[in-house]
């Protein structure tokens, strides 16, 4: 390549000293920014808890004032159903869950927990009474529990096995009571 203007007009009579401080500060800042974004992306890639993963401890205080803590329920099968009164497919599912609950509640080793996802208490209680739901239900205060399970939308159901790890996941509404029974049996065997 012929380079006609190699001898540029030497306007720089004094060599500006290299701004080390600025360079170092900005590169540290930059690397920090990239690391943060990278970590974020890595973290947000995990869409939900995986089966077999250990579920952190949490507790639900129901609308009736009872408190259910995960660690205290160890050895039992826990079905956690995230729902909302404003969710259109939660009502049908509520019926099905209640039907299964009536069958299993006497056995004592299966617990159903309805976790009310970002909802108002008034509407939730109306909902529960309207559909005759009797298994324990409580609000997800500060959205803490739904964040553990990385809930994207309601309804979502998770079953925690007797060893405290996640045994089954159902995203979306159950279509029938049978589907719930099958999933519970599957989770019990794990």
């Amino acid at each position: 390549m012929n380079n006609p203007v190699e001898n540029q007009p030497s306007s720089s009579t004094e060599k500006r000293r290299f701004p080390w401080v600025t360079a170092i500060i900005s590169s540290v800042f930059l690397i920090g920014l990239l690391v943060v974004l990278g970590l974020w992306m890595k973290q947000s890639k995990v869409t939900s808890l995986e089966i077999g993963a250990n579920v952190p401890d949490f507790s639900v205080t129901t609308f009736d004032g009872e408190t259910y803590t995960k660690s205290a329920l160890e050895g039992k099968l826990i079905l956690i159903n995230f729902w909302s009164s404003w969710c259109s497919s939660c009502d049908e599912e509520g019926y099905a869950l209640e039907e299964v609950w009536q069958e299993v509640k006497s056995s004592g080793d299966i617990v159903f927990l309805g976790v009310n996802y970002v909802d108002t208490e008034k509407d939730s209680i109306t909902f529960l009474n309207k559909y005759g739901i009797t298994y324990p239900n409580g609000p997800d205060l500060g959205s803490k529990i739904s964040r553990i399970f990385k809930v994207q939308a309601v309804p979502e159901t998770y079953i925690i096995g007797r060893d405290g790890t996640l045994a089954a996941i159902k995203i979306g509404a159950f279509e029938s009571a049978d589907e719930i029974r099958t999933l519970l049996e599957k989770a019990a065997q794990e």
Partner: peptide, 23 residues
């Protein structure tokens, strides 16, 4: 609005937001 992020409650058109406004 806690579910539809970055939408203020007063302009959010969903049913859930209407419930929160009632609250």
């Amino acid at each position: 609005c806690p579910v539809c992020e970055n939408t203020p409650l007063d302009v959010c058109p969903t049913k859930a937001c209407a419930q929160w406004r009632e609250l």
